[in-house]
Write a protein that binds this DNA or RNA. Structure first.
Lengths: 191, 191
DNA sequence: GAATAGTCTTGATGTAGATCAACGATTTTG
DNA sequence: CAAAATCGTTGATCTACATCAAGACTATTC
């Protein structure tokens, strides 16, 4: 199980020497059931998690209280809100599992310690952070496209997403109704 | 001029001792004319800048080539794309001045050096980074609202924005046409 | 494994905002 | 300062998507 994390570090920091023993000691496995929350708006993010198996969605609440999905995560993704985690302030993000999910978790304090102790974990974290910034900026510009275009882009990026994520959840991510997505699919597929 | 930067650091890292001399030595003043670009898609962000006076917009290009404003900045704001700046990779962001603007600029290399040499600049940078993450996540959820609501929220957040930013630019930020914004204002104001 | 709840689909109808066009007011440029 | 470009406004029309409703199919739950 820990090897999935170590492999992921290797992929992102190629050539670095991995302090395998040190890193592993800091993580605790945890299993969450489908529909459970990892993080909820208003709470402070005390743990980060690395997905060994399963998937989740991030969503926010609009001012009218409607849930809006902001992204999905699968194996080898991290969950937790960086801003809330680093500053120990309340988060605006909700994270809910869409399948029964196995994580390796680490507390904020331990994460901080590990960054001090492990050079390669520091590089790994930096790498992921800058990747995440790019991704979130990208999404903003995509929202100016029509729902049809955004759906097309989504499918190109994650062709397998339909096997894992329900249409209702995908619709919320595209910020359209499930009905609209259903109609979109009919035309999209035949194109 | 340098005092504006030092004051901003003081505000964000209260109580810290400011290495004034060291910090100031790393920055170079620069003046940009209205409509000049600080950053363009495809280029690498080699400098960051702190706005002493003036304002700018950030925009991205949609796949159809349309400009979409992602934000505005004024006095005491930083400009530059963190991801491009830190990793020295091409950016996706365009930054253009909307007024003649005076900056204090710093190169990527010097920024890196300064982070090593100054404890308070390190804390200051961390503080700003985590703030920025929160802000960009916020905007995503706001986009699920109607243009009317987004406009209202914008005015509540930055009541003075209409004095500085043209309707065309605000419309691009709200992701509606200038015509639509014009009509919105008529009702909005009378409400 | 029967009852219940949630999901997907399709149809009818409503609406926010886009697009196109035109004109005065303002700003920019030579 | 005159010419040209850009901006803000208003009207007419069009369209992508929302909303509401209702039936079939699929998962949960006890």
């Amino acid at each position: 199980m820990y090897n999935k994390l170590i492999d992921h570090i290797k992929q992102n920091v190629p050539g670095a020497s991995i302090e395998k023993q040190i890193i592993e000691a800091y993580f605790t496995p945890k299993i969450f059931e489908k529909k459970e929350h990892f993080l909820m708006q208003g709470y402070t993010c005390t743990r980060a998690g690395f997905v060994i198996e399963g998937c989740y969605r991030n969503y926010m609440l609009s001012t009218e209280g409607k849930e809006v999905n902001t992204g999905f995560g699968f194996e080898n993704w991290w969950l937790g809100d960086v801003s809330s985690f680093v500053n120990q302030t309340p988060t605006l993000i909700n994270t809910q599992f869409l399948e029964s999910t196995t994580l390796l978790t680490i507390t904020a304090k331990n994460h901080f310690d590990l960054l001090e102790r492990s050079q390669c974990f520091r590089e790994y974290t930096n790498k992921l952070r800058s990747k995440a910034t790019t991704a979130s900026v990208l999404k903003l510009s995509e929202l100016s496209e029509s729902a049809r275009t955004r759906y097309k882009v989504l499918l190109e990026k994650y062709p397998k997403i339909q096997q894992r994520i329900s249409q209702k959840q995908i619709a919320s991510f595209l910020q359209i109704t499930p009905e609209a997505l259903c109609r979109l699919r009919k035309f999209k597929i035949s194109e």
